[in-house]
Nucleic acid binder design. Structure first.
Lengths: 191, 191
DNA sequence: TGTACATCAGTGAACGCGCGTTCACTGATGTAC
DNA sequence: TGTACATCAGTGAACGCGCGTTCACTGATGTAC
């Protein structure tokens, strides 16, 4: 059991990473201090050496989740040198892999509904990330007006969230495919 | 304090109606037996004369919420004699009134994220309602293929859910407008 | 380099609280005569 | 129509449980000499 400063930083990191996955997998309210510490290999009492309260961790974990999931994906998509550009981003965003691993994926799609009910900091963090995704898509759409980018975001987020509702995998796949076609067609009709 | 059989039926109705609104306003997990009974004008102990458990009520309340919100809206949209048809449905679905009153609105948009994490009956009920909304939109789109209807549903649900994340009302309105334009344009390009 | 000690990461018992659920009870209802 | 009584809708105290949080403690860390 490490007691050094480096170990503490590593513990904090493990706690945050675990929390960031947990909230994307089962929602903001699912995060329990005791269980979280257990998964991080520690006991519940140590939690308050890292964060002042569950609520404070929640805000930080959401920020982390948004950066991990949506942020990474958007940055990848925004890279000019990427072969496929928009089509590549849409393909990966609406992929089975993304649908089946919400804990590693876009926190916007995983938590849209929770966001409106959450504390102000959580809500603000989510809002910023949505704006970021709109910007990113507008650029990818090649100078389309913002309304088109907004509609594209709605389609992407809605389709991914809905694809996770279906128990029948074929229907779920169909939902992803339908949205992929629509968003990809938006570019084609623009350029 | 009524003790008749009619009164009991009315109590059950009040409990269900209250629960159906509560879960759409604050999520499935937000439903508390004690608070719910309080809002229905009763004490917590009486709950088990109406439902066997919180979980059982949850499934019934979700079914009710889906029927109230999405069902009503879809049925209205499906009526052939309605002046505007699809455009009318889309306008009301993506209206400020709908956004600002989730407790009376579409349960799909209010609970997409919660659905995947919920018990099997809840998930199945949600799944059915999504299929129903796809069917309804396909008919409204005038014989478009199912993929287009699915993409339209994703856009509608995604935009409504996202519009509730924004604190800035102008951005929220813009999201609704953007999706309205896109879905309405789908019909135009079809017919 | 080696020892003495202050620091502090992590432990685990304990707390108050709200939850879902149970149950003995109360008193209005509605039926049998 | 009027009375006696079984039914049962609703009450509120009590339960066990898991939660977030606190705190006295332990023992490894890393610094001062």
């Amino acid at each position: 059991l490490g007691h050094s400063q480096v170990d503490k930083a590593a513990s904090r990191e493990r706690i945050l990473a675990e929390a960031s996955g947990q909230i994307r997998r089962e929602g903001l309210e699912s995060l329990s201090v005791g269980k979280l510490m257990g998964k991080a290999g520690l006991t519940h009492g140590g939690f308050y050496g890292h964060f002042p309260s569950r609520e404070a961790l929640l805000a930080e974990a959401l920020a982390r989740a948004l950066a991990d999931g949506s942020g990474d994906a958007r940055r990848a998509a925004a890279r000019q040198d990427r072969p496929a550009g928009l089509a590549g981003f849409v393909r990966s965003y609406l992929s089975r892999a993304h649908r089946d691993a919400p804990e590693a994926g876009c926190a916007i799609a995983a938590l849209v509904c929770d966001a409106g009910r959450a504390s102000e900091p959580c809500r603000a963090a989510m809002e910023d990330q949505v704006e970021g995704m709109i910007d990113s898509l507008q650029r990818q759409l090649g100078g389309a007006d913002e309304a088109e980018a907004m509609a594209a975001v709605a389609t992407l987020v809605g389709a991914l969230a809905l694809s996770r509702v279906f128990t029948d995998e074929k229907r779920s796949d169909a939902m992803l495919r339908a949205a992929r076609e629509q968003v990809t067609a938006m570019r084609t009709s623009e350029t």
